[in-house]
Write a protein that binds this DNA or RNA. Sequence first.
DNA 1: CAACAGAATATTGTTGACAATTGAGAGATG
DNA 2: CATCTCTCAATTGTCAACAATATTCTGTTG
Lengths: 226, 226
Amino acid sequence: MELDQDTRPHVALRRQRPLVLEVRDELERMILHGDIAPGDRLNEYALAEQLGVSRAPVREAARSLEREGLVTAVANEGVYVRKLGLEDALQLYDLRALMAGHLCAVLASHADAAIKAELRGCVAHMDSLIGSGDEPGYFELNLAFHDRIAEAAGPNADRARALYIAFGKEVRLLRRRVLDGAASLTQSNEEHDRIVAAIEAGDVEGARKAGAWHHENGKKRLLDRL
Amino acid sequence: MELDQDTRPHVALRRQRPLVLEVRDELERMILHGDIAPGDRLNEYALAEQLGVSRAPVREAARSLEREGLVTAVANEGVYVRKLGLEDALQLYDLRALMAGHLCAVLASHADAAIKAELRGCVAHMDSLIGSGDEPGYFELNLAFHDRIAEAAGPNADRARALYIAFGKEVRLLRRRVLDGAASLTQSNEEHDRIVAAIEAGDVEGARKAGAWHHENGKKRLLDRL
DNA sequence: CAACAGAATATTGTTGACAATTGAGAGATG
DNA sequence: CATCTCTCAATTGTCAACAATATTCTGTTG
């Protein structure tokens, strides 16, 4: 006998995705997009009404966001969008650099020819983008490049990768647009080249150092703008 | 007019500490103590009844534990005590070593005479404990030694410290008593000495390397027992 | 007897209501 | 007029009930 794909009473109210995840994503978007400013309190009641759900999912979503460091909860008072001080941002840069270095090191320890070629091609492509003055294109590919390294590091580094990503999100809480100011694109891509070279050579500690160094420059650039 | 210290109806049910924190601590204790085995599901209803509270605090506490990596939540199914595979444990050792190295590095960059003397005395004391064959005493002081380093690294590393502590808790989820097998106490304390020496010298990268190396040995010891 | 459909049960997801706590403003008092 | 206390409103903490979903058991069928 053939099965009906959907035997449920009303197709309309289909919701595969748990409500709390929807709420979580929406809150994250609001925070990262700046709709809710750092230091503001998340009013459970208001948010619940605004999102058309009960307070419980909002509460749970808030805890989930706390896990990512985007908000901090105070007992009997509420959860606040985390206000990132300069010290916090510097710590995040340090830890992110640490994770990036680790990911490069792990990748260097077991990179195959395919990923080496891909990364090498990536750097070459970025070089050509610099030559043609395409900054937005460079930034986009730059992101993809680092994502690819994190991904290629493999399952034995997925915890480090998760932290790397989380730190990246957190640092965006810093007052807007201090960080994305362009460094020298040429210098940046030279650092990329050093990273790939170390990975190609299977130089684990060299890759770690190159990866960490590249990210520490972001911190240095931030410090220069004071 | 003099105020009564406690004007609430019944003194008995005074509770300063939020209930969810009590539940969280109790659950953490149960998990770390092994009352709930890795892979087991946390039954909200049963736990709520057992602890004499409603399900809501239990749910929140579970989310909070998820934040620490002690449990993993599956939608519409429940939260499970995290089952730590060998690969996970190895990752944790790596990351913990990374954090330890970072903490040592930060401390080395701004250690004052007092903390240097304290750590130096700590190592000396541990040496004497080895001499008198007091293993339990050594382990206890060993813990205190590392805690002290983490603490003395200061507020500019409190994020790294938090991760260091969290990783330490997580690794305890590994099947019991594989990890605390004693290495050579003498060798261990020699590594302590190297750490302190680098800190005393203000050798940031040397301290990082020594701190990380010391913790990587834990990983190596684990791998030896396979 | 194996395998599958379907009901019964157990468990999580969600909701609205109530209790407890915090913060702010009104009013009294020196 | 400053300050302190008390009351009140706003908000979070907790609870118990209901809805949706997953799991288990059972009876039927080939």
